[in-house]
């Protein structure tokens, strides 16, 4: 499904690479946690799959295609195979829950009848059936993230990429989100989730790929995650919040 062959990504030649010679494969139907401290290359990994960035060297294959060699008008086709969820939800504030999810179908030119049928089903899956006509600001963070997940999967992508989807949520709400992601995985979608929430990783017992300074330091089938230095982790998180 996703294959990295000796992938290196350098943003700025003066600093160290964001990803440094990464080789790994994620097969269809897997649920993979991508763990590691901030700056370890998790987000870069996801951006390379989306082809938001191109690898400096090495090759990224998604569904058998070398993404770097896709022509610019083929890139949208790649992205239709991917659903993406972010830490900051990225909903449209002036659209209702229903319209936010429907928007993802509209821009692909789907028929109105199909939209009216599919959107309520997906909202059911994420547990927001009765909030279809609310606006994002009327929802809690967890609910907003559910809308974002609904939008990511409404076009039935083969792969769901989640970049710290629980990063802004309290532990209890995070579990709700994990249940939704698990359901989507059960339905056959490959899920790649970048996180540094060790509690979630340790409880779920899924495959864990750990990155550190752009290199894979661990790849375990049913792994857990114990950040090497909690203080450093906390500090880096604090820095991140300050920047925002």
């Amino acid at each position: 499904m996703i294959r990295f062959e000796d992938v290196t990504k350098v943003y700025d030649t003066t600093s160290r690479p964001a990803l440094d010679g990464v080789t790994t494969e994620i097969v269809r139907g897997e649920f993979v946690f991508l763990v590691g401290p901030s700056g370890s290359g998790k987000s870069t990994f996801i951006r390379l799959v989306q082809r938001e960035e191109k690898a400096s060297s090495g090759t990224v294959y998604v569904s058998g295609r070398d993404v770097a060699r896709l022509s610019s008008w083929r890139v949208p086709h790649l992205r239709r195979d991917l659903g993406v969820v972010f830490q900051d939800f990225r909903l449209l504030p002036n659209k209702t829950v229903f319209s936010n999810v429907a928007f993802a179908m509209q821009v692909l030119g789907k028929r109105r009848s199909l939209i009216n049928q599919t959107v309520p089903e997906v909202l059911e899956t994420v547990g927001l059936r009765d909030k279809a006509h609310r606006f994002p600001h009327e929802l809690s963070g967890g609910e907003q993230q559910r809308v974002a997940i609904a939008r990511a999967v409404v076009n039935k992508p083969a792969i769901l990429l989640a970049d710290e989807p629980t990063g802004n949520l309290d532990p209890e709400t995070s579990w709700g989100i994990m249940e939704v992601l698990d359901t989507i995985h059960q339905n056959g979608t490959t899920v790649v989730m970048a996180t540094h929430d060790n509690e979630i990783v340790n409880t779920m017992r899924r495959r864990v790929v750990e990155l550190e300074a752009g290199k894979i330091v661990r790849d375990e089938a049913e792994g857990g995650y114990q950040p090497a230095d909690n203080t450093a982790q906390l500090q880096s998180r604090l820095r991140k919040t300050e920047v925002k």
Partner: peptide, 17 residues
Amino acid sequence: RRETGIMRLVGASKTMI
């Protein structure tokens, strides 16, 4: 930019965007 960002994300074609 929010709208176009999401359009890119879900794979809307160049024409559409």
